[in-house]
Amino acid sequence: MPISRDAVLDWIKAYADAIAANKDYLTQLDSDIGDADHGVNMHRGFQAALTKLPGVADKDIGTILKTVGMTLVSTVGGAGGPLYGTLFMQMGAATPSKQELTLADWATALEAGINGVIMRGKAQLGDKTMVDALTPALAAIKEATANSASLSGALQQSAQAAEQGMKDTIPLVARKGRASYLGERSAGHQDPGATSSHLLLKTAADTWAGAS
């Protein structure tokens, strides 16, 4: 069973809950190397996105993802707003009129979203940003696809890769975003954006565990 439209809606709701539960944690990470707002920003955006879901619940997956993206752009602010907004808008643009997603569809959507993030933020792997969690997650999905893994297995592997990518940001010296102002002092801290991105993929793997 591929990922249904309702499952996509469930994923967004589950992520909004995960952000709410981790709001203080994300903000704490951001106060170590940023400006103490990442959790609050993301929470504001996903609460706003939740209010938009009923209006698009009977639309296709592309429309749902684009709506979430546009809501994030107009409510999150900071770097997170344009970056997560672009991620969702590009995922939506890559899944037009879809009523369900296969593993290949999801890989395409994620790749489009990540490319959007890289275009907007110009970060590279190793710059200590959310890209460090997202890029390995995409690579893991592609590898799992090549090895004809199950959908749920591929999602698990991508969540694990994102987790590893997130942890790997700890020793890095930030080269993008606010954390870069700290220079060497940014090393030794986990990047907040990579942490929220890992949560996004972990929530996908958990919510869609029954998909195949």
Partner: peptide
Amino acid sequence: PGAVFTSPTPD
């Protein structure tokens, strides 16, 4: 004006 210490949004 954005939220405290957070850049405003494009709209």
